[in-house]
């Protein structure tokens, strides 16, 4: 264990690496979150309005993702996902694509996020008072317009707490891609700790960085929720 001056020195040497790792974590998380939301929106609409086959597939997707540990899913998808994709492409006569570690990490996390987003958004859409949607229909709004002008704004207040939770989850889950070797904050920390033998110091610092990300995000989502709740009845 280094002395106090030693700790500061180590941090000033390796701090840059950790910050690059932290940026990488945020980058992966943002992309995965965005793709996950798109998947989730499709999933929620499919579950609510889709035919029996679509509903069956979506139920299978959400059930499996929610009962298999993220770590297992990430390892499977990380190795098998790109392999399968390349085989499918080869089958249709395309060249193999090279999927960078970054993209693989993003898509794997997005796949997991998508299942949870599906449930959050489905719940939020169902929470909209049915009268509002019926009124929109009575005014002759087309489905797309109805979705854009009525369902989306009306569901957001119900969805935001769940979506905030999902964002916190994806920032934490992104640490799991360290296990498959993509360099983000957790792996950068592991490398720094291994290189300097100051395991305690660097893991505490990494935990501090993750905590900062979480707290800043919570603050941001709090403001967002207040924005979208304006005009709604105050709860209690």
């Amino acid at each position: 264990m280094p002395t106090k001056a030693g700790s500061l020195e180590l941090l000033s040497q390796w701090g840059g690496n950790l910050l690059v790792g932290a940026l990488s974590t945020i980058q992966i998380s943002l992309w995965a979150y965005a793709f996950g939301l798109c998947l989730g929106l499709l999933g929620a609409v499919g579950k609510l309005n889709g035919g029996r086959v679509a509903r069956g597939i979506l139920d299978g997707y959400t059930t499996i993702v929610r009962s298999v540990p993220e770590l297992v899913l990430i390892v499977i998808l990380y190795y098998a996902g790109t392999d399968t994709l390349n085989r499918v492409l080869a089958h249709f006569g395309f060249d193999a694509v090279r999927i960078s570690g970054f993209m693989a990490a993003v898509f794997v996390l997005a796949f997991v996020q998508g299942a949870y987003s599906t449930e959050v958004l489905r719940g939020a859409i169902q929470a909209i008072p049915i009268g509002q949607i019926e009124a929109a229909r009575a005014f002759g709004m087309a489905p797309v317009l109805r979705f854009r002008r009525i369902i989306l704004p009306a569901m957001l207040p119900y969805a935001i707490p769940g979506l905030a939770n999902l964002w916190l989850n994806v920032t934490k889950d992104s640490a799991l891609v360290a296990v498959v070797g993509y360099s983000e904050l957790a792996l950068a920390t592991r490398q720094a700790a291994g290189g300097t033998k100051a395991y305690f110091l660097f893991y505490v610092v990494a935990a501090g960085i993750y905590l900062t990300i979480s707290i800043v995000s919570l603050f941001f989502f709090g403001r967002l929720e207040r924005r979208f709740r304006r005009g709604q009845h105050k709860a209690r």
Binding site: K172, D173, L176, A193, Y199, V204, A206, A207, Y210, L211
Partner: peptide
């Protein structure tokens, strides 16, 4: 807040390797 705001993986490594060191 602290536990829920940090990844479990980092907590595990902190406890095992951090304390171990």
């Amino acid at each position: 807040t602290a536990i829920r705001g940090t990844p479990l993986l980092v907590q595990i490594w902190l406890l095992y390797y951090g304390l171990g060191s």
